[in-house]
């Protein structure tokens, strides 16, 4: 780990003041400390925000607000989350390990970096870590990599399960920086890699995520998160699906579908949602609706199984909700 100076902030204002060129915020530490040890990131200054009171899980006029410093385990177990938004609780419970969920925060979860092995290994090139150095994953070990939203410069997946669930629910981020406060749809927060994969999101230098708002969506009580992975627990997704349905009289009125493990960012599937709408809630509908889920996908040498896996993962989630 490279040397850095350290300061703990007690308020958002203090945190913003202390942040500067080459600084990094420290929340749960499960990403930052790991990547500093690997020397994938080497901030000159670490601003510890664990004492900054960005807390609270509460229902408001615009939906459910979750403070950015709430820990994954506490959010997963909270009744205001688990009952109205099972997809969020299930995505959190299937993330990482109990120890990590006790540490990692909601804001940090959304900012976690890709698990691409080349990104995590400074001895290899990586356009995301070192712009212009190349992408060995395109022709290398790419079984776990993305098939949607990729570019010749980067094929890394976004690793967060929570972000997939929140994308399906159209969540919004509250951000605070030197220029004041702003909100942004999570779907607009993550960038596609294109030719600049090192620019991962719309966060401005020194800006902090202060909270997440999940819009009120009464029918999201009927929602679920299905995660397919190489081992049953403590593993990132090969493919995942966050699905919510509004069913009346056996007919799907509304649907939300987003996928993880397949895209360079959490991947909303509006075409699948549209194909579900107005159709009976049964397997034939599901099979037909997912037929085009992977349209436009660019499978790589070792992950040609992912388009089919994506379709089946969404169907499994829908079958679960039908049962």
């Amino acid at each position: 780990m490279r040397p850095y100076t350290y300061a703990a902030a007690r308020s958002v204002g203090e945190a913003l003041e202390r942040a500067g060129d080459g600084s990094a915020y420290l929340a749960g530490g499960t990403t930052l400390v790991d990547l500093m040890k690997l020397e994938v990131v080497s901030p000159a200054h670490v601003v510890d925000i664990t004492a900054v009171p960005l807390r609270g899980i509460r229902r408001g006029p615009r939906g459910l607000f979750i403070g950015a410093m709430e820990r994954m385990a506490d959010v997963a177990g909270h009744h205001l989350v688990a009952e109205p938004y099972p997809v969020v609780a299930e995505a959190l419970r299937q993330s990482a390990s109990p120890q990590i969920r006790n540490m990692a925060t909601i804001g940090g979860n959304l900012l976690q970096r890709t698990r691409c092995g080349y990104f995590r290994d400074p001895a290899t090139p990586c356009n995301r870590r070192e712009p212009g150095s190349g992408c060995p994953a395109v022709d290398g070990h790419n079984r776990s990599h993305a098939i949607l939203g990729t570019s010749d410069a980067c094929v890394a997946t976004h690793p967060s399960d929570l972000a997939v669930a929140l994308t399906a629910l159209d969540a919004r981020l509250s951000l605070r920086g030197a220029g004041g406060e702003r909100t942004l749809r999570l779907a607009d927060f993550y960038r596609l890699p294109g030719g600049t994969p090192h620019l991962e999101n719309e966060l401005r230098p020194g800006e902090l995520i202060t909270g997440v708002t999940v819009p009120a969506l009464p029918w999201a009580r009927r929602s679920t998160y299905v995660k397919v992975r190489d081992r049953r627990s403590y593993e990132f997704a090969l493919c995942s699906a966050a699905v919510a349905v509004h069913v009346k009289g056996g007919v799907i009125r509304e649907a939300r579908v987003a996928a993880g493990g397949v895209g360079t960012r959490p991947w909303r599937l509006p075409a699948v949602e549209e194909a579900l709408r107005g159709r009976p809630m049964r397997t034939e509908t599901f099979e037909a609706a997912v037929a085009h889920a992977a349209d436009g996908a660019r499978p790589l040498a070792r992950n040609a199984f992912k388009p089919a896996l994506l379709r089946r993962t969404i169907v499994r989630a829908l079958v679960h909700l039908a049962g």
Partner: peptide, 23 residues
């Protein structure tokens, strides 16, 4: 998980916890 300890009663990974923040 070999480094698991409890901080304020919660199990955490001590290898990813900076001691500086534990005042």
């Amino acid at each position: 998980g070999a480094c698991t300890v409890h901080v304020d009663g919660r199990r955490v990974l001590s290898c990813l916890t900076l001691a500086a923040g534990l005042g």
